[in-house]
Design a protein around this nucleic acid. Sequence first.
DNA 1: CATAAAATCGAACGCGCGTTCGTTTTTCAT
DNA 2: ATGAAAAACGAACGCGCGTTCGATTTTATG
Lengths: 222, 222
Amino acid sequence: MRKGEQTHAAIVAAALELAAADSLEGLTIGRIAEQLHMSKAGVFAHFGSREELQIAVLKEYERRFIEGVLLPSLKEPRGLPRLRAMYSRWIDRLSVEIEKGCVFVSGAVEYDDRPGPIRDLLVGMIRSWQRELVRAIKQAIEVGHLRSTTDPYQLVFAMHGLVLAVHHDARLLHSKDSVTRGRVGFAQLIEAHRNVDQPESSHIRHHKRKEKPNGTVRRPAP
Amino acid sequence: MRKGEQTHAAIVAAALELAAADSLEGLTIGRIAEQLHMSKAGVFAHFGSREELQIAVLKEYERRFIEGVLLPSLKEPRGLPRLRAMYSRWIDRLSVEIEKGCVFVSGAVEYDDRPGPIRDLLVGMIRSWQRELVRAIKQAIEVGHLRSTTDPYQLVFAMHGLVLAVHHDARLLHSKDSVTRGRVGFAQLIEAHRNVDQPESSHIRHHKRKEKPNGTVRRPAP
DNA sequence: CATAAAATCGAACGCGCGTTCGTTTTTCAT
DNA sequence: ATGAAAAACGAACGCGCGTTCGATTTTATG
């Protein structure tokens, strides 16, 4: 049974690569089989349907995103440093994927009108990531890095827009400096919401946490 | 020969509708024929190839965009009013298309990796629109509404990102207030680049134009 | 009204797709 | 080493696609 899992993983890996280039909907069992020197039926047997294969690809993509973007950022201190890390690694990942294409971006467009399990999965993943961003922003407000007037989701909205613009300018318009523009845009965005009273570099954060000893501060009363 | 042009236009109109829902690449001659109660061959004969049909659809889309977004905005006075009108009408158009889908947005993703005449046409159209936005921003700087430190294309980049985010949140995430978020984001963006010395409402603009009587000011020395 | 031209049709072709199924090969615990 | 289980195969099916082509209908002009 070990061989099975092995090729299963190889198929997902190859499919992930093809999906990046041609999007999830462009995935073709024949092309995967060709790249792996297998028969179509051999590839097919591992999943039972093309849709199951697409779902496996999407889940693997999210796994890598969490591992490469979210988890390392959580090691940064709460507030702006962590938020900056999340955005920066997000852009980092995108700028690598720009050569091939990004499954989240192309999937978002392809499945915005195609109901089904794939769409549901994709929406769940993006919502989950946005929730993490909102949480990080709320923490940045709590520790005083961002103004309390900042609307967390509005900021996520603008950040997401910048990411989409980076993808658009780089892939469609072949712009060389789209990644730079994405970073500049974020810097300006943060500057506009920065709390001038309490600079980010101060270490008051730690004192504050001692004043409020209960660990998790998410979900302040609405 | 009059009947020919008539059905030709009807085909383009129907195709435009289908392309909005399923994107340009999802266009199907069979579906168009079905909707028009015609035969596939009858539809096909008007264009000679699917690609020619897609090109016709794209050109028609641009024609409507120029007519509905660009031209009315040019009637607004130069500076912030005109820039605001361009963005506002852009969003207006998008919020109508949100029900079905936007050809520019889906096309941008579908053709970012698919060379050919359609991609070239799409890129040309988007570049052209961005050029108009850059020009409007430069004028807003000249008349003193925006700070001279404003990087025109960086602002276009951020605006485009907001538009993409509106499309994304509305179509994929079914967000009710994505259009509002798009407008708020733009307002914040403009506020960040506003020239505090010279409020938009002042009419100094006219005096300035008398001082510099040469009509077109585009392309200041680089 | 006749008639050439233009428009539309219906049937068929080749293609690649996902999927099915019986067969064959490989794997792996005994 | 052996035999059952797992994995991979090859051929075929049905489907919808863009496209072709000869026949047919409709249009517009003298």
